[in-house]
């Protein structure tokens, strides 16, 4: 996101744009790989699916921050494409990669204890409450796109960075709550998570159609805003579909484990309920 903000406003001096863009995803990917290698040295495995998700997240972030995308971020469709990648797809892939679990397994004792404390802290519990996540996500979207804030973003690089960072982090909260690969204090059950997903997706759909209908002048020319709004609508659908699959895949694995345990118990006591 640093790269996005800098690139959106052009850096005449300083390091080349592609370098800034590549640095953050590369660093994140390298850190993750280091964790997996550390586990392997101990002889412990790490699911290859999670590693693939982490690498895909780094790749998507790199694409979203790459010059061809950021060069178009001043137009509304370009901005929406970047928004979809950075605040929705990358958080989903990151959540699937379970980086907190990896950190808890590989960190030395003291930082590990700090991380555990943070996870159990009151702020963490409040921030991950479903209602709070929904209000944060939809509230931020409304604040950015339906108030004059969007216009101000392009006037101040610092504000731009702050708001983008906030939206990426909010997207991460949503994905972490829904996906369920990492530990989370009092994570709600599958039905509540599905309701959260439907409410958020409906909010996105309403926002996209509202933008299509009102075409706020701050976002750009009316035609561009309409194209961007449709990209937001359909692109958002695709990623929310993936989120629904992620929620249900976790349910499938969890109920499958329970089912196998039940079947084992039945096999262990064949006489009890098979009196045919």
């Amino acid at each position: 996101m640093t790269g996005a903000a800098l690139l959106a406003h052009g850096t005449a001096t300083g390091p080349p744009a592609w370098l800034i863009a590549a640095a953050l995803p590369l660093a994140g990917g390298a850190l993750y790989l280091a964790g997996v290698v550390a586990l392997a040295r101990r002889g412990a495995g790490w699911p290859p699916g999670r590693l693939r998700a982490a690498l895909a997240a780094a790749g998507c972030a790199a694409v979203a921050l790459a010059p061809p995308v950021t060069a178009r971020a001043d137009t509304f469709p370009g901005h929406v494409a970047q928004h979809l990648l950075l605040t929705m797809l990358v958080p989903l892939l990151l959540a699937l990669s379970a980086p907190v679990t990896l950190a808890l397994r590989t960190l030395p004792r003291r930082p590990r204890r700090v991380l555990l404390g943070a996870l159990r802290s009151r702020p963490a519990r409040v921030l991950t409450a479903p209602a709070v996540v929904v209000v944060l996500e939809l509230g931020s979207l409304a604040a950015v796109y339906l108030t004059p804030l969007y216009g101000l973003l392009h006037a101040s690089a610092a504000l731009h960075l702050l708001v983008h960072g906030h939206m990426v982090l909010t997207g991460c909260l949503v994905s972490w709550l829904l996906v369920g690969a990492d530990p989370m204090p009092r994570r709600p059950g599958t039905p509540v998570r599905l309701v959260v997903l439907v409410v958020l997706a409906a909010g996105h759909a309403v926002l996209a159609k509202t933008l299509f209908a009102t075409t706020p002048a701050a976002l750009g020319a009316a035609g561009e805003v309409r194209r961007g709004a449709q990209l937001l609508y359909y692109g958002g659908d695709v990623i929310e579909l993936l989120l629904a699959v992620a929620v249900m895949a976790e349910w499938w694995r969890r109920t499958g484990r329970r089912l196998r345990a039940e079947q084992r118990r039945e096999l262990a006591s064949p006489a009890s309920d098979r009196s045919v």
Binding site: L194, A202, A205, V206, K209, F212, E240, A244, V245
Partner: peptide
């Protein structure tokens, strides 16, 4: 995609049904 006659309630109901329908398939 959008009809000028749409009310706010219509937009919300449409959005909820849209989101619900494909979540329901999954």
């Amino acid at each position: 995609f959008y009809d000028r006659g749409t009310s706010a309630a219509g937009l919300v109901s449409d959005g909820l049904f849209h989101a619900f329908s494909w979540t329901a398939v999954v």
